[in-house]
Amino acid sequence: MPLTFEVIAEALREQIRSGGLRPGDALPTQAVLMREFGASSLTVQKAMTLLKQEGWAVSRPGKGAFVAHHDHPDGTHDLDGPDVTAPADGTTARIEALERALAEAVQQIADLRGRVEALELGGGERGR
Rank of each mutant, 00 (worst) to 15 (best):
E6L: 14
A9F: 01
A11I: 04
A11D: 14
L12K: 00
E14L: 10
Q15T: 05
S18G: 11
L27F: 02
Q30D: 10
A31H: 08
L33R: 01
M34V: 06
M34H: 01
G38K: 05
L42F: 10
T43Y: 02
A47M: 01
M48G: 02
L50T: 08
K52R: 15
G55E: 09
V58K: 05
A65D: 15
V67S: 01
V67E: 02
D71V: 02
P73I: 12
D74L: 08
D74K: 06
G75P: 04
G75V: 04
L79A: 06
L79E: 05
D80I: 04
G81K: 09
G81C: 10
P82D: 12
P82W: 10
T85H: 11
A86Q: 13
A88W: 09
D89E: 14
T91K: 08
R94P: 00
I95D: 09
E96N: 14
E96F: 09
E96C: 07
A97M: 09
L98M: 15
V106T: 10
Q107T: 13
Q108N: 08
A110T: 05
A110S: 14
A110Q: 01
D111C: 07
R113C: 06
E117C: 06
E117Q: 13
E120S: 11
G124I: 03
G124H: 12
R126C: 05
G127A: 13
